[in-house]
Design a protein around this nucleic acid. Structure first.
Length: 904
RNA sequence: GGGCGAGUGGUGGAAUGGCAGACACGCUAGUCUUAGGAACUAGUGCCGCAAGGCGUAGGGGUUCAACUCCCCUCUUGCCCACCA
C-alpha cells in the first residue's frame, strides 16, 4: 500500500533528474542540417557567463523561447536552438582581476556552471553546437571578419579624441557611453586623443534605417535605432570670412555650416563654431586671444556630463571676427561655444535665435540681435519674444516672403542656394563610427601589423589566428596601450609584406565584435576552414526568433545588423537582416529591503518635521544587521547579485522543481511585462503542477490503450444495451462528457495558439481551466468505475495532456508519457490536433441588451437564425417589462453574440 | 525637452468594438483531519437588507454598443536628450 503511494507521489526531483539524463543520452536535442522538414532557428542573446550564475530572472527569456522551440519541434520543424558564451570582454576580465584569476581558466568554469543551470531548468539546447568566443577556433574568424571589413575599406585607424573610461582604462564606443558615463562602471568619461580603430558603420546608416521596415521587431526598438542613427536632412552653407577678419596676406576658406533650416538663413545673426574647430585660432583677433584660449581649455577639461547637460546656461566667447551671410551680404560675428559639437555636421552652425531655442538663449545672454524670419501675427516683434518661435506662420524676410513655415519652403530654399552656388543639400547622421579598439587584454587581438616601411599591413589569412598570448599580468595599464604592448614576443614580428621588422597592433577588439556574427557560427560551429559554411548558413539563417533584453537596442542589435549587411555585400550570405522576429522579455523585480536616505538639513533651514525623502538605498545582505528590521523600507527592484535579492533556479528546482518554476515564470504576467517575483506565486505554480500530477495519476487506472479504435464501439454498446429510444439516438457520450471533451479540444487549440503568439500566461491559464474541469469530472465519478464512454474520454485526456504539457513542463510530460507505457519522448511526438467539431459549442449564450445595458441572457442552439433570436429576445420577461410604454427604434442582432434593443 | 509604453478588484493579471474582472494570489466559511502553511467544497469588484444602482486614472467625443477607437488632462515606467 505504502509502496503504491510512493509510486504515485510527485517526486519532481527524481523525475527531472531522470529525464534530463535520458534526453542527454538520447541526444534528443541534437539537430542536423537539411531534410524535408521546414527549419526553425530560435536564438537567445549570447550571454556572458558571470560568476554569479543565472537567477530566475534569466529564465524569463530562456524558458519562453524553449517552450516555443519545443512546440515547433512537435509541429514538425527541424529546430536549431543553440547556446554559447560571449566570453571575451571587460566583464569577464574585471571579474578575473577581482578574483586574481586567469580569465582563460575562469571563463570555462563559469560557462560550465551556466550550462549546468540551464540543463537543470530543462532547456532544450543542442549543446553539440556550443561555442565560446574567447577560444582561438572562434576568434580566428572574428579576426578574419575584421580583415574582411578592413579590405572593404570599413575598418580604419584614426587619431581623434575618443571616449576614455579612466577606471576601465580603455576607449569606449559611442553606444557604450550612457549619460556621459561608462556603461559598465558608471565612471564619467573623459576625452582623450588616441590612435584607434574604427568600423565605418556610418557608411551603412541609411540601409540600417531602411532595413528596419523589413523585419518584425518591437516598434520601440526600431524607433530607438532610427533615433540613434538620427538622419537629418538639411543643407551646408558657406559663409565667407569678412576681408578684415582674415589674417593679413592670407586667404581663408569660407566657414561651412550645416543646418536643417536653410529657410531661416535671413535670420542668422551670428555663427558659432565648436571650440575644437580648426579655424578658431586663425580667426581669433589678437585682443581676444587670451579669453578664447582660456575657453577652449576649459571646454577640453569638461567631462561629457558637464558639457551635455541641456539645462545649463549657455557659455561662449566672441572671436572678434566676422563672416558674411551669403544671402544678404551682412557681416555676422563669429563665436565659439561648447553647445556646438565638433563631431557632428561641420562643427559650425549659423545661429538663428528667432527660430532655435539654443540660439535664442545664447543671443539673449550675449545681447546679439534677433531677427524674425517667420511671423504668426503682425504684433509679433523681436523684442516681445520670450522663446524661439516654433513652426507656424509665414516668411517676412528675404525673397521667399509669404512662404509657409514648413518643409516645402526648406526644399525651395535649398534649390535656390544650389542655384546661387552658396550651398547644397546635405544629409547628416548622428551615428558615429564604431570605435572597436580596446586597451585591454581579454579580447580578440586586432590582426594588423605596423611596419615602418609598408605602414599598416593586415595579417595574412593563413596566419590567423593572431593568438592571445598567455600572460601573468594582464591588468589594464592606463598608458593608452593594452597590456599586450608589454610583451615583446607578441609585439615584435616581421612584416608580412616586406619581411622587415614590424610591430603588432596591441589593441584588442571590443566584445561586440564577437557577438556581431555568432548567430552565423551556430549554423556550422566546428568549421575549421571557414567562419561558416555557406550551405549551412543558407539552410538555417536568418534567425527566425530572437529573444533577449531591450537594453541592447542600440548596441549589439545595431552592430550585428551592420556586420550582416557587410557580409551580404561581400556575397558571403544572401540575406542582409540577421533577425526576422525579435521579442524582448520583461524585467524581473524582487521585493528588496532598503533604507530611506533623507536630504541633509541645510545649515540655515529649520529642522521642522522630516526632511523630504531624497533617495532610497538597498540594504545589501551584509548591511542588513546595521538597521533594525522594522525600519527597513521595502521596494521592488531589479533582481541582481549587487542588490542581494537573487533567487536562483537551483534553489527553486530543489524546492519546487524545474517544471513548477517554468509554470510560474510563464504564468505570472505577459512575456514583455516587468514582473514581481513572489514566493506565493512560486508556491501556487507548484500546487498546480502537483494538482495536474495527482489528477492524472489517479485517472491513470482507467486508461485504455485502444481507446481510439473503441470509440465507435462505445456508441454501439450504448445503443444496444439501452432499450428506450432516447438512448438510441443519443450520441456516444453523455452531455457532461461531451462538455469535457469540448473543453479538451478548446484547450488544445488555445495552448497551441498562445504559444505561437508568445502569450504564455493565458496559455497556462487555459491548462488550469481544463484541470479544474477535469477535477470536477473526477469528483463526479465518485470512485465508481467509469462507463465505456467515460473510459474512452479519460483515455483521450490521459494521452493528450502530456503532449500539451510537453513544451511547458517537459519532465512531467515525459514521465506521464512513460506511465502510459509509451516509448520515447513527447518531444518526438506530433503536437496534438484539435478536432473542430469536438471543440465547437452546440449551444450559445446570447446577451440581451436594452440601449447597450445588459438585461438578460438567452441560451439557444448554435444554428438558431437571427430572426428567431430576435423574437426570443423581445419576448424575454425582463425585456417586456422594461420596454413597457417605450418605442423600439431599432434592434441589432449580432449573430452568436448579442441582441441590442434600441428604445426610447 | 523628445520618443515609446502603461494606468482595470485588496494583489498579479484576463477581455482589443459586443456578458468587465478569465486564471491565479489573498481573504471568508465549511468538509476531512491530532494538527495543517495539505486536499476538497462554497463564496469573494463597490454601494445596498433587497429590488437595483455604480464601476476599467479624470474629462470630452465617435458608435446601437467603448477597458478597447479619437481629442484633452493627470499619473507612471523605460529609452534618448544642446546633433544645429
Amino acid at each position: 500500500m505504502t509502496d503504491d503511494r510512493n509510486e504515485n507521489r510527485y517526486d519532481f526531483r527524481a523525475i527531472e533528474a531522470k529525464w534530463q539524463q535520458r534526453w542527454e543520452e538520447a541526444e534528443l536535442f541534437r539537430v542536423r542540417d537539411g531534410g524535408d522538414r521546414p527549419k526553425f532557428y530560435g536564438l537567445d542573446f549570447f550571454p556572458y557567463p558571470s560568476g554569479a550564475g543565472i537567477s530566475v530572472g534569466h529564465c524569463r527569456n530562456y524558458v519562453p523561447l524553449d517552450v516555443a522551440c519545443r512546440q515547433k519541434a512537435m509541429l514538425g520543424y527541424n529546430v536549431l536552438h543553440p547556446m554559447g558564451w560571449d566570453a571575451f570582454g571587460q566583464p569577464a576580465e574585471n571579474e578575473a582581476l577581482k578574483r586574481g584569476r586567469n580569465p582563460k581558466e575562469m571563463v570555462p568554469e563559469y560557462a560550465a556552471n551556466y550550462k549546468r543551470q540551464l540543463k537543470l531548468v530543462g532547456i532544450s539546447y543542442d549543446w553539440s553546437r556550443e561555442v565560446n568566443s574567447s577560444q582561438p577556433e572562434y576568434y580566428k574568424w572574428t579576426q578574419w571578419l575584421f580583415l574582411l571589413l578592413y579590405k572593404r575599406g570599413l575598418a580604419y585607424r584614426a587619431n581623434t579624441p575618443i571616449n576614455w573610461c579612466p577606471v576601465d582604462k580603455t576607449g569606449l564606443a559611442n553606444e557604450e557611453v550612457v549619460n556621459g558615463r561608462c556603461w559598465r562602471c558608471d565612471t564619467p568619461v573623459e576625452k582623450r586623443p588616441m590612435p584607434q580603430w574604427y568600423f565605418k558603420i556610418t557608411e551603412y546608416a541609411d540601409r540600417l534605417i531602411s532595413g528596419l521596415d523589413t523585419i518584425q521587431w518591437p516598434e520601440g526598438i526600431k524607433q530607438q535605432q532610427r533615433e540613434w542613427i538620427g538622419r537629418s536632412d538639411g543643407a551646408e552653407v558657406d559663409f565667407p570670412v569678412a576681408p578684415q577678419s582674415a589674417p593679413p596676406g592670407e586667404t581663408v576658406a569660407p566657414i561651412r555650416v550645416f543646418t536643417t533650416r536653410p529657410d531661416t538663413l535671413w535670420g542668422a545673426t551670428f555663427l558659432v563654431l565648436a571650440p575644437e574647430h580648426s579655424l578658431v585660432r586663425m580667426l581669433t583677433r589678437p585682443d581676444r586671444r587670451a579669453e578664447v584660449e582660456e575657453y577652449i581649455e576649459r571646454a577640453a577639461r569638461e567631462t561629457e556630463i558637464e558639457r551635455q547637460s541641456a539645462d545649463r546656461t549657455k557659455t561662449g566667447v566672441f572671436l572678434g571676427a566676422y563672416a558674411v551671410n551669403p544671402v544678404n551680404g551682412e557681416e555676422v560675428p563669429i563665436w565659439i561655444a561648447d553647445y556646438v559639437l565638433t563631431g557632428y555636421g561641420t562643427g559650425a552652425i549659423m545661429a538663428v535665435p528667432a527660430h532655435d531655442q539654443r540660439d535664442f538663449e545664447f543671443a539673449r545672454k550675449f545681447d546679439i540681435p534677433i531677427r524674425l524670419v517667420y511671423r504668426t501675427s503682425q504684433d509679433q516683434t523681436e523684442e516681445s519674444l520670450t522663446e524661439a518661435l516654433p513652426v507656424g506662420g509665414a516668411a517676412v524676410l528675404g525673397p521667399f516672403q509669404g512662404a509657409p513655415n514648413d518643409k516645402s519652403t526648406v526644399r525651395k530654399v535649398i534649390a535656390y542656394l544650389e542655384e546661387k552656388g552658396w550651398g547644397q543639400g546635405r544629409v547628416n547622421f548622428r551615428l558615429r563610427d564604431w570605435l572597436i579598439s580596446r586597451q585591454r587584454y581579454w579580447g580578440a587581438p586586432i590582426p594588423i601589423v605596423h611596419c615602418g616601411a609598408c605602414g599598416t599591413v593586415p595579417v595574412p589569412e593563413d596566419q590567423l589566428p593572431v593568438a592571445l598570448p598567455d600572460v601573468e599580468k594582464y591588468a589594464p595599464t592606463g598608458t593608452g596601450e593594452s597590456p599586450l604592448a608589454g610583451i615583446p614576443e607578441f609585439v615584435n614580428t616581421t612584416c608580412p609584406q616586406c619581411g622587415g621588422p614590424a610591430r603588432r597592433e596591441t589593441d584588442t577588439m571590443g566584445g561586440f565584435a564577437c557577438s556581431s556574427w555568432y548567430f552565423l557560427r551556430f549554423a556550422d560551429p566546428h568549421n575549421g576552414s571557414e567562419a561558416f559554411g555557406r550551405e549551412a548558413v543558407r539552410y538555417w539563417l536568418p534567425v527566425d526568433l530572437y529573444v533577449g533584453g531591450a537594453e541592447h537596442a542600440v548596441m549589439h542589435l545595431l552592430y550585428a545588423r551592420f556586420w550582416t549587411k557587410v557580409m551580404h555585400d561581400a556575397r558571403l550570405i544572401d540575406f542582409d537582416e540577421p533577425f526576422q522576429r525579435l521579442r524582448n522579455q520583461g524585467m524581473l523585480l524582487a521585493y528588496t529591503p532598503g533604507r530611506e536616505v533623507r536630504a541633509e538639513q541645510d545649515q540655515n533651514g529649520d529642522a521642522e518635521g522630516d526632511a523630504p525623502i531624497e533617495d532610497w538605498k538597498v540594504l545589501r545582505p551584509e548591511e542588513r544587521g546595521s538597521l533594525p528590521e522594522d525600519q527597513w523600507i521595502w521596494r521592488w527592484v531589479k533582481m541582481s547579485k549587487s542588490m542581494g535579492n537573487v533567487v536562483t533556479p537551483d534553489d527553486m528546482a530543489e524546492k519546487y522543481g524545474a517544471d513548477s518554476l517554468r509554470f510560474y515564470g510563464l504564468f505570472v504576467a505577459p512575456f514583455e511585462e516587468t514582473v514581481q517575483w513572489t514566493d506565493k506565486g512560486m508556491e501556487a505554480a507548484w500546487r498546480f503542477a502537483s494538482r495536474v500530477w495527482r489528477l492524472w495519476t489517479e485517472l491513470r487506472a482507467y486508461f485504455h490503450p485502444d481507446w481510439r479504435t473503441s470509440l465507435p464501439a462505445v456508441a454501439n454498446a450504448i445503443a444496444s444495451t439501452a432499450p428506450n429510444s432516447e438512448a438510441q439516438r443519443a450520441p456516444e457520450m453523455a452531455d457532461d462528457e461531451r462538455k469535457l471533451r469540448r473543453k479538451l479540444h478548446q484547450t488544445i487549440r488555445k495552448v497551441g495558439e498562445d504559444i505561437e503568439n508568445f502569450r504564455f500566461n493565458t496559455c497556462v491559464a487555459a491548462l488550469m481551466e481544463f484541470t479544474n474541469e477535469l477535477s470536477a469530472f473526477r469528483n463526479s465519478l465518485g470512485g465508481n468505475d467509469p462507463s465505456p464512454s467515460q473510459t474512452v474520454l479519460v483515455s483521450e485526456i490521459l494521452e493528450t495532456l502530456p503532449l500539451l504539457l510537453s513544451p511547458i513542463a517537459p519532465h512531467m510530460a515525459d514521465e506521464l508519457w512513460e506511465r502510459l507505457d509509451k516509448p520515447g519522448f513527447t518531444y518526438r511526438q506530433p503536437w496534438p490536433q484539435f478536432d473542430p467539431q469536438a471543440a465547437a459549442e452546440d449551444e450559445i449564450t446570447i446577451v440581451v441588451q436594452i440601449n447597450g445595458k445588459l438585461k438578460d441572457r438567452l441560451t439557444v442552439p448554435i444554428d438558431t437564425p437571427s430572426e428567431e433570436i430576435e423574437k426570443q429576445a423581445l419576448a424575454c420577461e425582463k425585456v417586456v417589462s422594461e420596454l413597457n410604454g417605450k418605442t423600439i427604434r431599432k434592434v441589432i442582432v449580432v449573430p452568436g453574440k448579442l441582441v441590442n434593443i434600441v428604445a426610447g
